[in-house]
């Protein structure tokens, strides 16, 4: 299977994610009654054993994090991972629950809700274009230190993975986190078909 993407394909994938992320940010903005700043997504196609390193480079290794993962299955299947620092998660809990000191349960629920909205919006948008269906699973959240996020990522079964990462950023509310969409094998193929179709449409 050819898993290399050329420059045009990566550019197109970025634009897809950008548009999906726009929808996700709008959903969250609506929910939080806030304004989110959009960031340029990053695409990494790498070997699965490099994932830990990629994540490590985007977070502060001394902090505690809520790491939430959500699985989605179907022709375009994979995992969405949302990593948010303890402080950001607390702020999220505060805003979502309108309380000054949210409990651990409140924070967990808020983080899960956020992940769900992000995953659903981004992946739905992609699958809509792919003309396929996905099923979403309940996200599960863990409160862990940075090193454990990296360690617990055992993805040795995956050969090549695509890491799509971007930042969720609500400046006024001091909420920001990193989003990773991890897909492999057939999902990458599906993605390529979609991308090529889009390129064909635009470039003719």
């Amino acid at each position: 299977m050819n898993l290399e993407f050329n420059e045009d394909q990566i550019d197109t994938l970025k634009e897809f994610i950008n548009i999906s992320m726009g929808a996700a940010t709008a959903s969250l903005a609506n929910l939080l009654d806030a304004f989110g700043t959009m960031h340029i997504p990053k695409i990494d196609i790498c070997n699965s054993n490099e994932l830990a390193q990629k994540i490590e480079s985007t977070i502060d290794l001394k902090s505690m994090y809520y790491a939430t993962k959500q699985l989605f299955t179907g022709r375009f299947g994979g995992e969405c991972m949302f990593i948010i620092s303890e402080d950001s998660a607390k702020n999220l809990g505060r805003h979502l629950y309108n309380v000054t000191t949210p409990s651990r349960d409140d924070i967990n629920d808020a983080v899960i809700e956020l992940t769900n909205i992000l995953t659903s919006t981004i992946v739905s948008r992609l699958t809509q274009e792919l003309n396929t269906q996905v099923q979403f699973f309940v996200p599960s959240s863990q409160f862990i230190d940075a090193n454990s996020i990296v360690h617990c990522e055992d993805v040795s079964d995956y050969s090549k993975i695509i890491i799509i990462s971007t930042i969720l950023d609500f400046k006024d509310q001091k909420i920001n986190g990193n989003i990773y969409i991890l897909t492999k094998d057939e999902a990458i193929e599906s993605l390529r078909v979609l991308i090529d179709k889009r390129i064909e449409e635009i470039y003719g």
């Binding site: 959903s27 979502l96 967990n108 809700e113 309940v138 959240s141």
Partner: peptide, 22 residues
């Protein structure tokens, strides 16, 4: 919270969830 989750499900058109470990 329940209302918010219902609204979210209706707006984004996909399921929403409660934290299973809660």
């Amino acid at each position: 919270v329940f209302y918010r989750k219902i609204r979210t499900a209706l707006v984004i058109g996909t399921p929403t969830f409660y934290d299973t470990n809660s």
